[in-house]
């Protein structure tokens, strides 16, 4: 049973939980579900990769299970591990012989399921988010590939656990390194770029209630101009939203040079970027 009836259905339902799609996003989400394939999302930071997984969960009333990747993440944190302290206690308390003890301590109750295993064992609708995959070491990709190929996990002491209901899997990456060809081939791929000003304006209007359309328009147009400057860290959707919130709080009606100069820190976090932008946009009072 699939979660979405069509790309259009994906668009409407994600929209209902305040995630604004474009045809690329809606189609990729629909297909990942319909074909039962993991969806790998790449793109700059802050364009809504993680948020999309959350939105899919919210829109389909699924549980969100998240595996946050980091350097040094290993199988025992990603898949499962044995709770050896509980096992030790059991052996110490034990009256049985070694054989019984061994059989006893490798049972369900001593197993610590980590996100991958948890997601596979669930019978309820599940979205598995493997976030920032590029931060994990290369070996983790092998593990992911294995698990995501047939959605089963073999635990030597317990046997093979197969998903009775495949989770909807989202992998995200900021592409700080190239993921392996094999993993990419296994997934459907979606690149989320900075949105068009039109879509970004609509995102601001949904996410910053109370902002006037005119101001929202000015924010996203100016952010688009900033992105064109080739800064160290281009402002993302998150920064547009922060900016809009700030302007709302300051009760600004108009985003003129003066106001931009006063609030630019909300949008650009690097000093060098700040200087560069002030110079290029001819902002008052900041010097270049």
């Amino acid at each position: 049973m699939t979660m979405f009836a069509s790309p259009e259905d994906a668009r409407t339902r994600l929209g209902a939980v305040d995630y604004l799609t474009d045809p690329g996003i809606a189609t990729a989400v629909f297909l990942a579900d319909a074909l039962g394939k993991p969806l790998l999302i790449e793109g700059p930071a802050g364009v809504g990769k993680t948020e999309l997984a959350k939105a899919v969960a919210a829109a389909t009333s699924s549980a969100l299970i998240r595996l946050q990747c980091y350097e040094g993440l290993d199988e025992s944190r990603a898949l499962y591990e044995w709770d050896y302290r509980k096992q030790l206690l059991r052996i110490q308390a034990g009256v049985d012989g070694w054989d019984e003890a061994r059989a006893g301590i490798f049972a369900e109750e001593f197993l610590l399921a980590r996100p991958l295993l948890t997601a596979i064992r669930r019978d309820e609708p599940t979205v598995l988010l493997i976030d920032e995959t590029d931060k994990a070491d290369v070996e983790v990709e092998g593990l992911l590939l294995e698990v995501l190929s047939d959605f089963q996990v073999t635990i030597p002491e317990l046997g093979t656990i197969t998903a009775s209901r495949r989770p909807f899997v989202v992998l995200t990456s900021n592409a700080t390194r190239e993921l392996s060809e094999a993993l990419k081939r296994r997934c459907l791929y979606l690149y989320i770029d900075y949105p068009t000003p039109e879509r970004e304006r609509d995102i601001v209007l949904t996410r910053v209630p109370g902002i006037r359309a005119h101001l929202a328009e000015q924010v996203v147009r100016t952010v688009a101009s900033l992105r064109a400057l080739e800064l160290k860290k281009a402002p993302s959707i998150a920064e547009s939203l922060d900016w809009a919130h700030t302007l709302l709080a300051l009760e600004a009606d108009d985003l003129d040079e003066e106001t931009i100069a006063r609030t630019l820190g909300v949008v650009l976090k690097h000093v060098a970027d700040h200087t560069r932008a002030a110079k290029e946009l001819g902002l008052p009072g900041l010097g270049g």
Partner: peptide
């Protein structure tokens, strides 16, 4: 259709 082909075939931006 374009988006579907892209999702299945283009794995590098």
């Amino acid at each position: 259709l374009r988006a579907a082909y892209a999702a299945a075939l283009v794995k590098r931006h």
